[in-house]
Design a protein around this nucleic acid. Structure first.
Ligand SMILES: [Zn+2]
Ligand SMILES: [Zn+2]
Ligand SMILES: [Zn+2]
Ligand SMILES: [Zn+2]
Lengths: 141, 141
DNA sequence: TTTCACTTGCAACTCAGTTGCAAAAAGCGT
DNA sequence: ACGCTTTTTGCAACTGAGTTGCAAGTGAAA
């Protein structure tokens, strides 16, 4: 509840010109503590009793994404996973690796990928997303 | 209806040890003619009157994906887009570029991307997927 | 404290994709 | 060509993430 990052979350909202509301601080808190991409449901579970309504969580996430504070990292089993965008460069966040055996997904924060180049004229790449699949260390033995 | 690739599709099924059925040939035909990633619904629309049931299309796609004949290229608006895998290398198919303005997606077939390298030990990358976002030539002016 | 635009909660909805099961049909040996 | 076995298909009912409309609540500026 009284996590050390509470004040920082308040700053984040202030810098983004967003009103200080309980749902926004709560969602930021959940994403900060998780430190890996999580679903709307996991956000609600993290906040348990004080969790905002499902719809509110989606709307808060939408708003934070628009401000560049949060990213929709990837989809898995038709469900979106969100994470703080603070480890991401402007054009590219880190790749995510999903194990085809145990279905766990991890962030690969140290992998550097060059931005793709498109031969045809006129394309302006604003963002690149890389997803990896394979066997994780535990399943690869 | 009598597309020139009918015989080739039959060959594809034979090589994969799959039974020759109308739904399988029809789905292959739709994907072949489209030549870009399309949804289950677009497959059905392409086949109009002779379209197999929704469930059958999903099951055919699942089966073709398992054999490496088709790829799930990407998700957009919670909907999967499928395409023939014949332009893909084993570990990576071409990137897809989605315009943030007009929401159209195109295949970037000539972009070469190196495979990501993971510093931690034990990961076996089997497949890499790259998604690009930005402005397409038409919206970029 | 008043005001007002922005935000939240609820209920009802949408719609891609899934599940269970009985009927159809592909392929094989005769 | 005929029946037999296994696989595949179609239908109806279901699932569950995400969305919409609207009335009630709240942040913050004046
Ligand atoms: Zn694993
Ligand atoms: Zn991550
Ligand atoms: Zn465009
Ligand atoms: Zn493509």
């Amino acid at each position: 509840m009284t996590s050390p990052g509470k004040k920082r979350n308040s700053e984040i909202l202030k810098n983004a010109n967003l009103r200080q509301t309980h749902p926004r601080l709560a969602v930021l808190d959940a994403l900060m503590e998780a430190d890996i991409p999580i679903t709307r449901q996991q956000i609600a579970e993290h906040l348990s009793d004080s969790a905002p309504d499902k719809v509110t969580i989606y709307r808060v996430l939408e708003c934070l994404i628009k401000k560049g504070i949060v990213h929709k990292a990837f989809m898995k089993e038709r469900t979106a996973f969100f994470e703080m965008a603070h480890n991401c460069s402007k054009t590219q966040c880190h790749p995510h690796f999903t194990c085809t055996s145990c279905r766990k997904t991890v962030c690969i924060k140290n992998a550097k990928m060059p931005l793709a180049e498109i031969n045809e004229q006129g394309f302006a790449i604003k963002h690149q997303k890389v997803e990896l699949e394979g066997l994780c260390p535990e399943c690869n033995s």
